[in-house]
């Protein structure tokens, strides 16, 4: 079984890209691929990690690259300090992944496909470069799925 988790918020413009990719995947995969929408909430993410040994996540990221750039990280490549400890409220995605490592709740293979995003303002609709990245991101995700 493959699990694909799209992370995002449909009401914060480019932040919806992970969910848009999951929407697009619905018509392209069969029941052997479990598609999950997440708002990044850590306990539900950790539960989703436990569903399969191989998990692909899709999320908006900000690294300073060109908007729409598609990044690929494995959990081992994620910079250990990235985003940790500075959040006043939510436990961030990378923090959740780190937490999963410590609590032995990570799948063997965790791939994060990140889409470089710029606009996280309130509202619906993505910026043009991010919207244009949805289809190539879908193909990138399909390329990560393990054969049954």
């Amino acid at each position: 079984m493959n699990v694909v988790i799209g992370v995002g918020n449909r009401w914060r413009r480019d932040d919806s890209v992970g969910l848009e990719v999951v929407d697009a995947l619905r018509e392209r995969v069969d029941a052997s691929v479990v598609l999950i929408e997440s708002d990044g909430e850590p306990t539900r993410l950790l539960d989703a990690f436990a569903l399969a040994p191989h998990v692909v996540m899709v999320d908006a990221v900000v690294t300073g690259a060109e908007p729409g750039t598609i990044h690929r990280f494995t959990d081992k490549e994620l910079p250990a300090r990235m985003g940790i400890g500075q959040s006043s409220h939510l436990v961030q995605l990378f923090e959740t992944i780190e937490l999963g490592k410590i609590l032995d709740k990570l799948p063997n293979g965790l791939i994060l496909i990140g889409v470089e995003a710029t606009d996280f303002d309130n509202g619906e609709g993505m910026t043009e470069p991010v919207a244009a990245a949805v289809e190539p991101t879908v193909r990138a995700v399909l390329g990560e799925l393990l054969p049954l």
């Binding site: 918020n9 914060r12 900000v62 690294t63 995605l93 990140g114």
Partner: peptide, 14 residues
Amino acid sequence: KIDVDYIARVEGEG
């Protein structure tokens, strides 16, 4: 100044 500006989950800023 300490800035945190890496990744999504930007549901609010302070």
